[in-house]
Write a protein that binds this DNA or RNA. Sequence first.
DNA 1: GCCAACGTTGGC
DNA 2: GCCAACGTTGGC
Length: 154
Amino acid sequence: MKHWLIKTEPSVFGIEDLAAARGRTTSWEGVRNYQARNLIRDEIRKGDQAFLYHSSCEQPGIAGIVSVTRAAYPDRTALDPRDDHYDAGSSAADPRWYTFDVKLVRRLKRIITLDELRKHAGAELAGMIVLRAGNRLSVMPVENAHWRFIIELE
DNA sequence: GCCAACGTTGGC
DNA sequence: GCCAACGTTGGC
């Protein structure tokens, strides 16, 4: 089982929204970055777990843990001209973008902030992608050792 | 709202 | 296939 970190803006869709969603499950739609797409399409498996990370907000950090309930399938929002994430280059026959389903496992007892993660950037969390300056990936792998360390921080 | 980082686009 | 311009992300 692999571990991941998925970013979201809580003003758009945060952990509160996921907790309120039917079955506490949502389709992780709208990813339009090729590197992230490849991870979704080729590497994320049912049963994997991910940190839900809040970005572009007052307190950026990890808010909860989700599990993957369905592996990659075509992102229908790319095919809908009325959708913000519409992409004329994608088609049902040859989908360019993929989504996957996640279910909230639990909220963390507190948000583990980016600030706090940074304190360990030179040691236990060395190399963690979300700590890299200017990082723009919205779906990224998390090393097992990093995952365990962060859970311990809680 | 600023601005650094960086992926994408498009001219050549 | 290079690379400058541009757009977006995301922390602050």
